[in-house]
């Protein structure tokens, strides 16, 4: 089916996939003994997560799937027992997923308790399952888990809120972030959610700085980026906003990049516009600029961008350059 084009991009989701369930990068960056220990634990969890089930585990997992269609009053005690007695974390992880799909108060309470009291991989799985389950009461408890959690737990909470599409809760985390390092993944989450209004509110409060520009781009906020590109006092930030237009890549964004190149106040902004066109693979605009270049230096810079793009426009320009002509 051809459905509407979602603004959510896989970019931030890939970020979560790469880091939220491990937290390895965060922990290694700190390099304290506790952080190293945490990194080792995370790596072990990751290895366990990425293995195939044994025959016994596969049987247990098949049984868990069958619980999806069982009455909650029968299914929840069986899952509770699995979480208590089963030795395999892989089976327990699948049990937590099923738990999140059961619509009963007992299931929600058990899942929340698991997210609060378990540790390691299973805590992350329980948090994810809360996001999938979407119960507003359980989701409201996630910020407290985030506040006291490791980077891996914080990543899992953000992923759960992304899954639950809970923009207000992520906004709350953005407003209470303690430092830019903690704020960045929160901004990435808002961007992945396409939370344009929330990002603009953060911008109006002066929260986010240059990271916010990237978030605007990922969220597809053309108007927000253009506003920064045209009016911000910091030329570096203006340049980042112009480059971000390339990530959006729509015809309107391409037109805006061309306009920003032609009206650039600094060389930095011109270079940023070319980089944006490179990101958007906008050969047509770059070829137009090449044809209209007024100086040899400008022609060389634009030609350099064209040659990086490849494609017919570049070949046309190269051919013309070799013959001493302008295409």
């Amino acid at each position: 089916m051809l459905l509407t084009n979602s603004r959510r991009t896989p970019l931030a989701v890939a970020f979560f996939a790469a880091s939220s369930l491990t937290g390895v990068a965060h922990a290694q960056a700190s390099a304290t003994p506790v952080a190293v220990q945490q990194a080792e634990q995370d790596a072990a969890q990751q290895r366990d997560r990425r293995r195939m089930p044994s025959d016994d585990e596969a049987l247990a997992i098949a049984a868990l799937r069958a619980l999806m269609s069982a009455p909650p009053e029968r299914a929840v005690p069986l899952i509770e027992r699995t979480l208590r007695l089963q030795k395999s974390d892989l089976v327990k992880a699948r049990a937590l997923f099923v738990l999140g799909q059961i619509n009963s108060q007992a299931a929600r309470m058990l899942l929340l308790k698991s997210a609060q009291e378990l540790s390691g991989r299973l805590q992350l799985e329980a948090i994810r399952s809360i996001g999938i389950g979407g119960d507003s009461g359980s989701i409201a408890a996630l910020p407290a888990i985030y506040a006291n959690g490791s980077p891996a737990v914080q990543g899992a909470v953000l992923e759960a809120l992304l899954i639950a599409d809970s923009k207000p809760m992520v906004m709350q985390l953005a407003l209470t972030a303690k430092n830019p390092k903690q704020l960045e993944p929160v901004l990435n989450t808002l961007a992945a959610m396409g939370a344009v209004e929330e990002l603009r509110q953060l911008g109006a409060r002066g929260i986010g700085g240059d990271k916010l520009v990237h978030a605007f781009a990922v969220a597809g906020d053309l108007a927000g980026l253009l506003n920064i590109a045209r009016t911000h006092a910091d030329s570096g930030l203006r340049a980042k906003a112009i480059r971000g237009l390339g990530i959006i890549g729509t015809p309107a964004a391409k037109a805006a990049m061309l306009e920003r190149y032609q009206n650039a106040k600094t060389a930095l902004e011109k270079s940023a516009a070319l980089e944006g066109m490179l990101i958007a693979n906008d050969q047509k605009s770059v070829l137009t600029l090449y044809r209209n270049s007024k100086t040899a230096a400008e022609k060389r810079e634009v030609f350099s961008t064209l040659s990086k793009m490849g494609g017919d426009a570049a070949l046309e320009a190269i051919d013309a350059a070799l013959q001493g002509q302008t295409p």
Partner: peptide, 27 residues
């Protein structure tokens, strides 16, 4: 992503959440 977005729009947030959760696995 499109299915998740459409499910959300059509009031099936439960389906949308599962589809959104599947996406990082595919990535």
């Amino acid at each position: 992503q499109n299915y998740a977005a459409r499910a959300q729009q059509l009031g099936r947030a439960d389906l949308a959440r599962v589809l959104r959760a599947l996406e990082p696995v595919l990535v």
